[in-house]
Design a protein around this nucleic acid. Sequence first.
DNA 1: CTGAAAGCGCTAACAG
DNA 2: CTGTTAGCGCTTTCAG
Lengths: 344, 344
Amino acid sequence: MVTIADVARHAGVAPSTVSYVLTGKRSISADTKSRVRESIRTLGYQPHVTDRGTSSSRTGVIGLVLPLRAGMHLPGMMRFVTAAVTTARRHDMDLLLMTADDGASGLRRAANSAQVDGFLVMDVEMDDDRVPLLRQLSKPSVLIGHPATARGLTCVDLDFEAAGAKCVDHLADLGHRSIGFLGAPSAVYRRSTGSAHRTMNGFSAAAMRRGVAATALSVEDDHDSVLRATKALVRAHPSMTALVVHNEAALGWITACLRASGRQVPGDVAVVAICPDELAEQMSPPLTSVRLPAEELGRHAVDLLAAKLDGKQPPPLMLLPPRLSRRASTPDPALVHRRAAQSG
Amino acid sequence: MVTIADVARHAGVAPSTVSYVLTGKRSISADTKSRVRESIRTLGYQPHVTDRGTSSSRTGVIGLVLPLRAGMHLPGMMRFVTAAVTTARRHDMDLLLMTADDGASGLRRAANSAQVDGFLVMDVEMDDDRVPLLRQLSKPSVLIGHPATARGLTCVDLDFEAAGAKCVDHLADLGHRSIGFLGAPSAVYRRSTGSAHRTMNGFSAAAMRRGVAATALSVEDDHDSVLRATKALVRAHPSMTALVVHNEAALGWITACLRASGRQVPGDVAVVAICPDELAEQMSPPLTSVRLPAEELGRHAVDLLAAKLDGKQPPPLMLLPPRLSRRASTPDPALVHRRAAQSG
DNA sequence: CTGAAAGCGCTAACAG
DNA sequence: CTGTTAGCGCTTTCAG
């Protein structure tokens, strides 16, 4: 193993000089600098990152705290992760995986053991028990998702309120006057999951603003519940012509269940989903959707953390604007009328 | 920050003693041991992992080299990754992510910088250019997938030959005498991807052994190619009653394309896929499949690496036996005949 | 602008 | 069984 001392000897300078060339923490004459660089190259020196004089200095490693709960959207997570590693490498950093079920103790372990310079915490909820700890920790962190109060933290998230609103606006623009909302299982709302609550709030507020009738229902993750929910919705609101779905499990069944309730998609009922793009594309008919921007979140999260590590103070909350991709499930009104005329 | 020296002082022993209590590398009297433990607890000591006396000693970190190529099966990778982190934690280790596009240089960087104790290398191919490097590296590694020659390495992989054979056996047992095989795009075979070649070899050998007619075709990743392939297959082998598909992209289209070629699934043609379970379940009809065991691979890979780090010498190649899950696409012959009779 | 030297927290001989 | 001591590779004072 070639050490900094070997380089120093080879270049005819002191070890500390080599160190300074590496870190750039003090000015070195162009001459010595190039001589040292040369020696580094010819000897094939690689800094022994693990041991940087211990006390000060960074490790170049970011802890990525993954949620391992069941029912996570695996492809979405993987997208986030790969975007995060790629971005981290651009900042000359690496990612250390940590499971969320290590929970608070795992965070503390990693923080104190000086393994990492900071944390990326995925899937943060409204009143996440890791949040108080993160505030105390001396290491900076960036949360994906945001708790009830983001004070003193840095968070990135999709703007779920705007997402809910965007769905309504899209549908209202198409002329729909009565819109339903199928949300997550009630347990998710009880857990006070940020994305679920915020989306529904955004949906309701936008419905008020646009003066359209709105009915929201929480729905469980099984086929029967979805069927019951759609039937109830159709019975209670016969005039309902559009549905916003924020429940990935329900997506696969929704078209069939609506049909079983006497409604065709998109002929009788237009559907907008809030879900990963690929999921929306797989449905038949493909669903208009507001996408969950995994890659952007990963990129921004790492960039924000890197900024913090450089002593900058990014804003506490970065909300990504929702983007809606229009697909077959929300056709133009003219088209719908023609179809309706054809079929009835 | 509370150091080992603080603990030593508090417990009235030498720093080294504390160190030995921690590592268990020499026997300590029960008395001192408990006294030290007590001090550790009350002072809230956490080992400063980053700096373990530099020279010897492990970092407790495993490098996980991910392939970031397009077209990877994201949910499967995520399954592998989560199984790997979980298992790693059981060995008191963490996982450091590395992208494969860092390639050989990335491996070298991580190895020399002493960031990691060893590597997990995903998605290894027959003649992978990282393999020679891995042999040279002083750090141990475990490969997922296996190169042409596994000498001097440790590999875990699904036994793809057995998988191909298992498909044939299942179909032959059901009475099928003429079986087709739809493989990966030809580019994949040219790249000499292990799983593709081995599966096909297993398929062909088993077909010989069972005395059934077999025809294999490579097929590109688009709808048109799949359609052309099925049509060609049906025309050339009108008596073909079963199909093995080892191509994830093709799966979604296969049923429709067979129908377009005048064959119903499973009435006229039974189908077995080699793919992640969840994919097979999503198809309609759900496909009988040999699963890609992401979790098992993750678990075994980490266990093997941990064993190597403990100085053990695991066998160079661990092949997981294929498991076939039967679904609607390979019904009993009796049922098929009844259906065939019904429909024509 | 550069060198010498003193640690950093921990481990591993070396001595009892 | 335990304490003393000498490093590990690198950073960072402190002196030029």
